[in-house]
Computed example of a mutant assay.
Amino acid sequence: MGWRYVCIDEASRINYRLNNIGIVYKDETIWINLDEIDTVIITDSRCNTSIKLLQELVEKGISVIICSNNHMPVGLFLPFQNHSRSSKYNKCQLEWSIAIKKTVWKEIVKNKIALQSAVLQKWGRTNKLPLLTQYLMEVEDGDPTNREGLAAKVYFRELFGEGFSRERRDEGIINSSLNYIYQIVRSKIAQVIVGHGYIPSLGIFHISEYNYFGFADDLIEVFRPICDHYVMKLLQKEDVKFMSPIFKEKLVGILLEKVEIRGTKQKISEAIKIFVRSVTDALTSQKLDTLQFPLFVYEK
């Protein structure tokens, strides 16, 4: 799999020829070899393409993210079978016990709250750190008292301001940026889950029958504070009023940022692979010592 994250906006067509994708604009066509591509993000609904190209992309394990008329991600193409032993891992996934799923979810929530505290510390928002520490210490298996939700409410208001409310349908620049960057990371996690032979809909906490990416929604939680910090940095550097193509490309850059995991610094795209493998190993072996969480939040 490649390393490029290709954002396609204002193109009239996307072609395929000899293992290359051709992005057709008014005055030029840009060709990129498929072996260099990790993910394609199509943000313009007026862009045309072919089934042949989609087939080639999916067969190579390249994720294709489709955006709506308001340029927000709404769909994801993934292969049905992207691992030679998918049936084996599907069976393992179905046999994960409720007890180990609750315990792993507890660890995910605790690490998410710890990262939220680290983000607030980086930005000098320290008033609510004792409360977040209290919530972290109170997390139980399965988080039945919803410490994760309580911590998130406190954290967002402290980071983005007392009047801020995390609303998916809010079109303000902060919520729009968070919605977009979460979907990019969520899509990458789903790609890795399928690539490892697991079923993305079988979550350990997010188990709605209407959610095809429940497992990805479980695992993204520890990356959300890192995304929040990245958005905060971008908005501090630039006077952004709307989701322009250039700004969206910068948001996609989150996958190339580095965190520390397993004692080394890795791009988030690589850290996701390590994290997903560590979680599935823990769920299968019922041993928490395999878990590897991202431990580093970027400097300003």
Rank of each mutant, 00 (worst) to 15 (best):
K241V: 07
G195D: 00
N69K: 13
W3R: 11
L255K: 02
G163N: 09
L235S: 07
Q93H: 06
N48C: 11
G149T: 02
Q116L: 12
V74T: 14
G124T: 10
A282C: 15
Y16M: 06
N111V: 11
I37G: 01
E221R: 01
S63Q: 12
P245L: 12
I41H: 10
R224H: 06
K122C: 10
C7F: 14
Y25R: 12
M243H: 09
S187I: 00
G61N: 02
S97F: 00
R224D: 05
V64I: 13
E107C: 15
R46H: 14
E162T: 09
Q81S: 14
E260D: 04
V185S: 03
F275P: 00
C47F: 05
Y155T: 05
D38H: 15
R157E: 12
A271G: 14
I14S: 09
A151E: 04
S285H: 14
V222W: 04
I62N: 11
N19W: 00
M137L: 12
N146K: 03
C92D: 12
V154N: 04
V222E: 06
S12V: 14
K153L: 04
F160H: 03
D143T: 02
Q236C: 14
S208G: 13
Y155K: 10
N48G: 11
I41Q: 09
F156Y: 11
E221H: 03
K26A: 11
V276N: 00
V24L: 02
C7M: 15
I65K: 08
Y89V: 03
I30C: 07
V139N: 06
I226F: 03
Y182P: 13
N20E: 15
L159K: 08
S97I: 05
S278H: 04
D44V: 12
I193Q: 08
V104T: 14
F247G: 07
L18A: 12
L150E: 08
C92V: 02
A282E: 13
S117N: 13
L115E: 02
I98G: 10
F160C: 06
N70H: 09
I42T: 09
P73D: 06
L120I: 04
G124F: 05
F164P: 01
Y298T: 10
Y5C: 12
V231Q: 13
I100D: 01
L159S: 09
F293T: 08
S87C: 08
R4T: 09
V259D: 13
W96K: 08
E59N: 10
D217R: 04
E221K: 05
W31N: 05
K258Y: 05
C7T: 13
V119K: 12
A216T: 01
